[in-house]
């Protein structure tokens, strides 16, 4: 039993972090929030060259041969940087293609960062998707990072498909609460795609992976809110003292640190459970989502409070985490939906 990062994981973390600090400082994240979707193309190719999309893909399929535990490290760093773009869809697409006999050339393009694949969760209530054979019809209302995607990993209740952008797919970008994770309304009119699996268990497995990696992304953001508050608490002075010396602020930061540890521990445990195919993996993923969503929403709010009047401005980054926390909660099974799943488990017992 060991839940601390390995030396490989530490190496991945430091290389991803330094890449993101150079390529995606918060000033660039804010530019991308205003820019058209094609602005992401160079970033995607650079990430592809560094092997970001293939960490959990076998070496024989063009990946690095690690596992979801290393992908967790990547997503934590992406979440810490509030990196915009369909990272989750692209990594999931690589998995779906590699594990379900997808086209090898297509897989190579995803791994190289030449395809930006948005994840379309067609199992949620926010839409009405029907997949028949290789055709998809219906709508997804709040699809994150879908604008400008070159393909869509569509997860219908019983089928997983990779659908390329075409005239049969209409993407309508929507004004979005979360500037770093914009949403679009996506309509499929009998759009043709590559059918990767017709199996509800496969779809559930992909959703499980997606959910737990989104938790890892949240862990990075949650950790960042703690760091921002602590940094500010050390330098901002009132009454001739750093505000972090006041217990009202210090204790709020302590609670933020506890929530961060709760989120990180439960996510790490869930990720390893998924990697091992543990019998309780679905339960562990629900636990992680419940605790990460609660921690993110509250930590982001506390971070605004700790920054005072500055925290309420557009200029201060604190609000970006408030909005990301909200967009994290509502996708892939909200906190309340996950609580109901857990409750259904022991109510039935």
């Amino acid at each position: 039993m060991d839940l601390m990062p390995s030396s490989d994981q530490e190496a991945i973390q430091s290389s991803v972090r330094s890449f993101l600090e150079n390529e995606l400082p918060m000033s660039r994240v804010r530019e991308l929030a205003q820019a058209g979707p094609d602005a992401l193309a160079p970033l995607w190719r650079a990430a592809g060259e560094l092997g970001f999309f293939g960490l959990g893909i076998p070496e024989g399929d063009g990946g690095s041969g690690y596992a979801i535990t290393e992908e967790m490290v990547l997503f934590e760093e992406l979440g810490r940087a509030l990196a915009p773009g369909p990272w989750l869809g692209s990594v999931l697409a690589a998995h779906a293609l590699a594990e379900h006999g997808g086209d090898r050339a297509e897989l190579a393009r995803v791994l190289a960062g030449e395809q930006r694949v948005a994840l379309i969760d067609g199992t949620s209530a926010a839409g009405s998707l029907v997949a028949r054979g290789g055709d998809v019809t219906g709508e997804a209302f709040y699809a994150p990072d879908a604008h400008g995607a070159s393909a869509f990993l569509v997860l219908a209740p019983r089928a997983a498909l990779l659908v390329p952008a075409s005239s049969a797919v209409t993407v309508e970008p929507r004004p979005s609460l979360d500037p770093t994770r914009r949403i679009a309304r996506v309509r499929f009119d009998g759009a043709r795609g590559a059918l990767l699996a017709e199996d509800a268990a496969v779809v559930r497995g992909l959703l499980r992976t997606a959910t737990v990696l989104s938790c890892a992304e949240a862990v990075g953001g949650i950790q960042r809110t703690v760091e921002m508050s602590v940094e500010y608490g050390k330098v901002r002075k009132q009454f001739d003292r750093p505000i972090g010396s006041f217990q009202a602020v210090k204790h709020r930061c302590a609670d933020m640190a506890v929530r961060a540890e709760v989120a990180r521990s439960s996510t790490t445990y869930a990720v390893v459970s998924v990697r091992d195919g543990a019998p309780d993996q679905d339960f562990q993923v629900s636990v992680a989502k419940i605790l990460c969503a609660g921690a993110y929403v509250q930590n982001a709010a506390d971070n605004v409070q700790n920054h005072g009047g500055m925290g309420f401005t557009w200029e201060c980054d604190a609000h970006l985490f408030v909005k990301r926390a909200r967009s994290f909660d509502v996708v892939l099974g909200s906190r309340v939906e996950q609580l109901d799943r857990l409750a259904a488990g022991f109510r039935a017992a």
């Binding site: 039993m1 839940l3 601390m4 540890e261 709760v262 990180r264 521990s265 439960s266 790490t268 445990y269 562990q284 629900s286 636990v287 419940i290 605790l291 609660g294 309340v336 609580l339 109901d340 857990l342 409750a343 022991f346 109510r347």
Partner: peptide
Amino acid sequence: ARRLALLRAEVEALRSMTYRSV
């Protein structure tokens, strides 16, 4: 039921936190 579910999740987190600390 939801409050029980949250407590159930929290004691699970207590265990994973302990595992991480150990």
